[in-house]
Design a protein around this nucleic acid. Sequence first.
DNA 1: TCCGTTATGGACTGAACAGTCAAGAAAGAG
DNA 2: CTCTTTCTTGACTGTTCAGTCCATAACGGA
Lengths: 193, 193
Amino acid sequence: MARPMEFDRDEAIGKAIAVFADHGYEGSSTAELLARMGIGRQSLYGAFGDKKRLFLQALERYNAGSLAQTEAALAVEDSPRAAIEAALLAFAVGPDVTPEAGCLGVGSIAEFGRSDPDVNAINDAAGRRFKAAFAARLADGVAAGQFAPDLDPEAGAEFLLTVRAGLKVAARDGAGLDRLRSAARLALRGLDV
Amino acid sequence: MARPMEFDRDEAIGKAIAVFADHGYEGSSTAELLARMGIGRQSLYGAFGDKKRLFLQALERYNAGSLAQTEAALAVEDSPRAAIEAALLAFAVGPDVTPEAGCLGVGSIAEFGRSDPDVNAINDAAGRRFKAAFAARLADGVAAGQFAPDLDPEAGAEFLLTVRAGLKVAARDGAGLDRLRSAARLALRGLDV
DNA sequence: TCCGTTATGGACTGAACAGTCAAGAAAGAG
DNA sequence: CTCTTTCTTGACTGTTCAGTCCATAACGGA
């Protein structure tokens, strides 16, 4: 039909995620976004709309990746308990992890609170899936006798998501993997029989 | 000696805390700060230096207040366990609490990470005191047989601070007090005998 | 009462901001 | 080969930003 884009859209969003995670939404200038995404100004506005829509697309993609990573971690281990520990720490382990990099989900909540309906919608949708994934594995663990029989999987999943948010804040504040793991293990003890 | 200030300095910082908690550092314009602090431009620059120094003073005062609130909650209850639960939720209860208001400490960590030495220094100093306060009460609880004898108070305190950060993120995301309390209780179970 | 000092208010400044415009370059369709 | 469509490039715009300047007002000390 016509001239194709010269840049890879997904790759560009990935770079945008890094910028927004570094400085937040307000702290990220279009100039820095352009520089680190490696594209021109008009390309950004043509391909993504504006800064806000770029942010929303970045947040959506970040949440999708984060969810996939979490679900993978939950699935890989046989033991529900080990699976949940791995899922809690999944964001902090792996080859391409930068510990000081911020989490776009937590970052967007800290920055916007509940003030932006678009941000709310994206984070709420992701939150429901995270909760369902943790709750399912918790129910497994209860059935297997690994967790307390009176444990409500819904409440437990909310607790785990809270701990996960706290771990991300701690990581952003410089906590090493050992401290994160120690905290995750104490959290899991709260679910034990 | 000369003309006295027309506004109350502490009160003005309190208003500034609210603005920064709402929108973060980058998201807060000097115009909005002036409007909500109820002072003129020159008064702000004369009394606080510049936006950055105002933010640091706001952060310092916020942390001091938060620490005082936490230590008070830790002291008021006889039972270490009840005291710690109260301390975890102290930020979310009380008369003048706005649940959707952000926490300046968590907010500054989310926004700056470890990139700003001044912010780091303030948050690190506060973090040490929080940790010491929780660790002391944890040691009480271990001695009283309320918590597991093998519990390391330092690691336990780091865990509690992590949970607290997570609770603040959850509150900022709209979680009600009941959900926060449920999560806090599950966290405490991880410390039990 | 007058003077030195400090606070205040409003206008101002240069820089940085997000977003637009218009002209040219690159590709596929015929 | 050429036309049409879309992407790219760089200059540009109006606005908002943090911070400054200066004239004026208010106070305490003498």
